[in-house]
């Protein structure tokens, strides 16, 4: 499943994932945003992996925020924007 969200004033946030037993699986975040350090990408993927597919946007954003070290810098992307891309993927909005 594939979801995309162009964050207003930001960059394109893309999520590819599967759902297994009602939980997010094989989550892959991608896009033309900026993250420092670059290892934060894997941290975000891992934070989303296994979360209930029916979790709301605020819950997903909180999971992401909690997983990231305080020194991680995001530019053109936010935990909230990632949550929107997850929801779009789950809703089967294939915009690519």
């Amino acid at each position: 499943m594939h979801g995309e969200y162009k964050m207003p004033g930001g960059k394109l946030v893309v999520i590819d994932l599967d759902v297994r037993d009602g939980r997010l699986a094989h989550v892959q975040l991608s896009g033309d945003f900026f993250l420092e350090p670059d290892s934060a990408l894997r941290t975000i993927d891992a934070a989303l992996e296994g979360q209930p597919a029916d979790m709301d946007d605020a819950g997903l954003a909180r999971r992401i925020r909690d997983a990231l070290a305080p020194d991680v810098m995001m530019y053109g992307i936010s935990p909230e924007a990632i949550a929107v891309a997850v929801r779009r993927a789950l809703q089967g909005e294939h915009l690519a």
Binding site: V14, D16, Q28, S30, G31, D32, F33, L35, D38, L41
Partner: peptide
């Protein structure tokens, strides 16, 4: 491609 872009996408 950028550091965080999906190759196939």
């Amino acid at each position: 491609i950028g550091r965080f872009q999906s190759l196939r996408n």
